[in-house]
Design a protein around this nucleic acid. Structure first.
Length: 123
DNA sequence: CGTCTGACTTAGT
DNA sequence: TACTAAGCCAGAC
């Protein structure tokens, strides 16, 4: 592994928050990096979410295929070796595609619960 | 310590 | 609707 490695695999609170949210994504649903980032408390760090997922533990990676970008595109599809693998996993859960590598967010978008009553995290 | 890159997002053209 | 530029945070060089 050539990626993030803190003292003893000790990840930042933000990372753990992201992983927790990803695990909460129900089957047959998908969410975006931005939604997770905002729910985790870093609305402007959507890129961090993607980077964290790349270094995510097996249990999180197992459901990481349910995370797509705000356009519904399988941007991280190559993480499975090929986007086709990711698409197959989603279709198996009942997710339909509006394009080769673009899911129908209007039907399957899942929004994580925000921390406490809509606190102005953003801004 | 400075610079580049990235499983992104938003706004502008 | 598609493409481009800028912003964002953290890690690798």
């Amino acid at each position: 592994m050539t990626t993030a490695r803190r003292k003893n695999s000790e990840r930042s609170p933000f990372a753990e928050r992201v992983y927790a949210l990803v695990r909460q994504i129900p089957p047959g649903r998908v969410t975006t990096y931005g939604r997770i980032a905002r729910a985790a408390g870093a609305a402007r760090s959507a890129r961090l979410v993607g980077w964290l997922l790349h270094d995510a533990p097996p249990d999180v990676a197992a459901v990481a295929h349910r995370v797509v970008n705000r356009n519904g595109e399988l941007t991280g599809g190559w993480a499975w070796g090929h986007p086709l693998v990711m698409r197959a996993l989603l279709e198996e859960e009942g997710v339909t595609f509006v394009d080769e590598f673009r899911v129908d967010l209007d039907r399957y978008l899942w929004e994580p619960e925000l921390p406490s009553s809509e606190a102005p995290l953003d801004r």
